[in-house]
């Protein structure tokens, strides 16, 4: 089976510091791969090469087995890659619909932005994702963390993302909202999306991910099948940078 995404031998350095050092990870359809590691381990940097926010120095990216060039966020979108950023890349002063369609506005035949149509679509998708959502006219800065996160997720889902990058999607959320996001991830998985999940909470990793790729100091420690290891094994990978001795099969790109 061809992986949905394969990032092969990726390196990127900032002023002599190797933020990502020859790292290879992959992702299959309907799969959630956790990216783990300490702050500064390089996981966010790695994933930003895929989302187009950074340009890698060397390495290749394959989508469905085809070599692709991702130079900017527009290129990433063209390959149906959507990113939900830790910092919630929303324009605080605009309402939910304007944010959902930012950069891809619906327009009338005369080329003007069609706010009514966008609000209607936003109401439709929010009815599915977060039925309690009601503040369609307010700027998103007036929304709670969970409501803002649902706007960000709605943006990815609406545009038929096939590859979803989630950078700590539950970091700013309360328990109920975290549960909502967890259910959403299961649903998206069932629809055949591939999800890269950057996560610090081991509990969430064990619950949501199929595989976990652990990074330390810019290098890949290894990729393990989450069902075959324990919490302690993964913590050991993160802290000590050692593969578990119990010998969970090391998974490489197909």
């Amino acid at each position: 089976m061809t992986p949905l995404v394969e990032m092969r031998d990726i390196s990127i350095a900032f002023g002599g510091v190797k933020a990502v050092d020859h790292v290879t990870v992959d992702l299959f359809p309907g799969e959630v791969v956790g990216l783990l590691g300490h702050n500064g381990a390089g996981k966010s940097t790695l994933i930003k090469c895929l989302s187009g926010a950074y340009q890698m120095d060397s390495g290749q990216i394959f989508i469905n087995g085809d070599r692709v060039e991702i130079r900017n966020p527009r290129d990433a979108r063209a390959h149906n890659i959507e990113t939900i950023y830790q910092t919630l890349a929303l324009a605080d002063n605009l309402d939910a619909a304007s944010n959902l369609f930012l950069g891809r506005e619906l327009t009338t035949p005369l080329g003007f932005v069609d706010d009514a149509a966008m609000e209607a679509e936003t109401r439709r998708i929010m009815g599915r994702l977060n039925p309690n959502f009601a503040k369609f006219k307010a700027p998103v800065k007036a929304l709670s963390g969970g409501q803002r996160q649902s706007v960000a997720i709605a943006r990815a889902v609406y545009f038929n993302a096939r590859i979803l990058i989630m950078d700590e999607p539950t970091a700013a959320l309360g328990p109920q909202e975290t549960q909502m996001v967890a259910e959403l991830i299961q649903e998206l998985k069932a629809q055949g999306l591939g999800i890269f999940l950057i996560e610090h909470d081991i509990h969430n990793v064990m619950k949501l991910c199929d595989r976990a790729s652990v990074m330390k100091n810019g290098q890949l420690v290894g990729t393990v099948n989450v069902n075959a290891v324990t919490d302690e094994d993964i913590l050991g990978m993160i802290i000590l940078g050692k593969m578990p001795e119990t010998g969970a099969p090391k998974m490489e790109g197909a």
């Binding site: 989302s51 990113t83 324009a91 605009l94 944010n99 950069g103 080329g111």
Partner: peptide
């Protein structure tokens, strides 16, 4: 006013002012 409220350019002006990073990441 039409430019500000009813065109993409206007929408992008306000988006970039509200959060320049978000605007950039949205492909603007």
């Amino acid at each position: 006013t039409i430019l500000a409220r009813r065109t993409r350019l206007g929408r992008y002006i306000f988006a970039a002012g509200g959060n320049p990073d978000a605007a950039e990441l949205s492909g603007i």
